[in-house]
Structures are given as structure tokens and as C-alpha cells.
Design a protein around this nucleic acid. Structure first.
Lengths: 149, 149
DNA sequence: TCTCAAAATAAGAATTATTCTTAACAAGTA
DNA sequence: TACTTGTTAAGAATAATTCTTATTTTGAGA
């Protein structure tokens, strides 16, 4: 169902931008390109570490920050326990649970390619638009009104 | 241009939910209801502190977390320097700069009331939908390719 | 109005996320 | 191959967020 950005695509893009292709970056990219859900920085770190045991957390941070600035991955959701990233380039949208903060993906044929609204161009150079739905996910609806603060 | 949620609205909603109305919460709500931009937790803290000098940062965190869970305010943007909140209930959308992480508001008459897509209902109980545009803001376009990592 | 249980608070310690510093290293170009 | 410059590892430093505990306060009910 999900077509994630390919390693080749990313690497080519990085070359265009003059970003060096290091061993560490390749492995991080490989992990990202697998595109499992919305990994956090430390999840990516854990995974990559198995193949590159000496990699530092800082490198993962730096790399993801760079990919994010190049619009190759996107931060998503609002857990205060660290940023999570979305590497899925299939047109899709997000449902954000206001209780647990988790982000869920969904697709919507009619709205899949929203045109970037006119007004957005006044703010800057836009690369794409998505829908963000707020609500309470099923999991959190279940435990409604229990041990919450 | 911006109509923010009124103090009365919030207080009534909190009573319905059985949330106690404390002095501290009222002052935090008052600050939020002013609705200046997208304040961070510590900005709210600083402001409220001038009127309630003994308030603790933790209380601000707890209150905002609670308001967020009740969908009265929304986290917005992705700066890793802390969550920022949006208390503007006017229909509006967000432009997120992938370089600096700042969130800009904009309105769009045609898209102002997006219906919640069918597919979202399978994930949970939705309360509303907005558009999120990604891109590079004017400010960051200016300093393109300078001292970035 | 008074009493009381449950919930909320302050204070600061503890945790966790993120960035910074510096010396060593490696990519890509000439 | 040598060089320039960007990148990395390591761990210290900083900043954000949560937790713990003793105390205070709210709101419901007598």
C-alpha cells in the first residue's frame, strides 16, 4: 500500500544539493526508506546501530534534520517524547489523536492531491498540501476518563 | 481577524468535563484566550507568572496538556525547542516551514470548512480537519544555503 | 457555612530529548 | 595521491518535560 521514497531517489537528490554521501547517512537512509510507520530519532538510531555499531545519536539527529530541511522526510505528530518522522511519499493524510498524540495515516482519493491554496504562496514557497484531522483515536476512546490526570 | 475562544466558553466546557477551575488555570486560560500567535509553554509561563508569581512551570504543562486533550488548544509546528500551541478557533490553516520549523496561519475561503474525510472516521472520532502546507517561508528563502550545517 | 475527600499545586529532583564542542576522519575534487 | 572541507564520535552541556512528595484548594454535600 505504501510506496516510500527509494534510496536511489534520495541519494540523487542529496548529490544535487551537494550533500556528501557517507556510510552513516546511507544506512540511515536505508532505514528511513524502509518506511515503517513514523519512527522516532532514537528508533532509527537503535536500528541503524545494529549495522553501524559506532554511529552516534547526534549523527542521526543531524541527518534527519537535514533530510527534513530538504523536504525528504517530515516531522509528524506531537508527542513530547521526541519528534517522529514520516518518510512515506505516497499522497496521504494524517489523523492526530489529541489524547495520545499518535499520528495515523489515511488516504482519501477525492482529496489526495489538494492544490496548494493561493494564500499559502504569500508565506513562502510551498511544496505540497495535506489534510490534518484532529480527534480521538479508537484506542483512546476505549480508556476514556480513566486514570488521566 | 482572529476570533479566539472566549474565557467563558472554555470555563463552561471545563465544568462540563468535571475539571476544577483553579486560580492558576483561570490565569493560564486568560492568557491563552488572548491568543497571541503560537505561544510556547514557557512563554505562557512567563506571562502568567507576572500575575501569579508562584505558579510553577509544571502547572502550565499540566494545564496545557489537559486543554489539548479536550481539544481546546492544539499543538502546532515542530520546533524541537518545545511545543507551541494554537488557540485560534477561527477556521484557518497552517503553513509549516521545513527549514526553521515555524508555523504560519492562513485562511482560505474555499477550503475553510473541509469535511472530515470518510476514511478518518475509521481511525477514531474526528473533531475537525485543516490543511497543512509544507514549504520554505520567505525568511528562510532569503538566507538559503548559508551557514546551514 | 462547615467538613471532607479528591484533585491540584509548588518545589525541586529526576529524566529524557536535543544540541554543542572538539579532535579525528573521510568524501570528493584537483 | 594530496588536499580541502564537510562529517563524525564521544561525551559534556543545555533545554524540555515529567515525576515525587508534602501541602493546599476546590467543589460537593451535610
Amino acid at each position: 500500500m505504501h510506496r516510500h521514497i527509494s534510496l536511489e531517489e534520495i541519494v540523487e537528490r542529496l548529490r544535487e544539493e551537494g550533500v556528501r554521501i557517507t556510510h552513516q547517512r546511507l544506512e540511515i537512509l536505508r532505514e528511513i526508506a524502509r518506511g515503517e510507520g513514523h519512527p522516532s530519532v532514537s528508533e532509527v538510531f537503535q536500528e541503524v546501530r545494529e549495522r553501524v555499531p559506532t554511529i552516534s545519536l547526534d549523527t542521526v539527529y543531524r541527518t534527519l534534520r537535514k533530510l527534513s530541511a530538504l523536504d525528504l522526510v517530515h516531522p509528524v505528530g506531537y508527542s513530547s517524547e521526541g519528534i517522529r518522522f514520516d518518510a512515506d511519499r505516497t499522497p496521504h493524510h494524517h489523523f492526530l489523536c489529541s489524547v495520545c498524540g499518535k499520528a495515523y495515516d489515511f488516504t482519501c482519493d477525492e482529496l489526495d492531491r489538494i492544490p496548494v491554496p493561493e494564500a499559502a504562496y504569500r508565506i513562502g514557497q510551498a511544496s505540497g498540501a495535506r489534510i490534518e484531522v484532529r480527534g480521538i483515536c479508537r484506542k483512546c476512546m476505549g480508556k476514556e476518563g480513566k486514570g488521566n490526570d
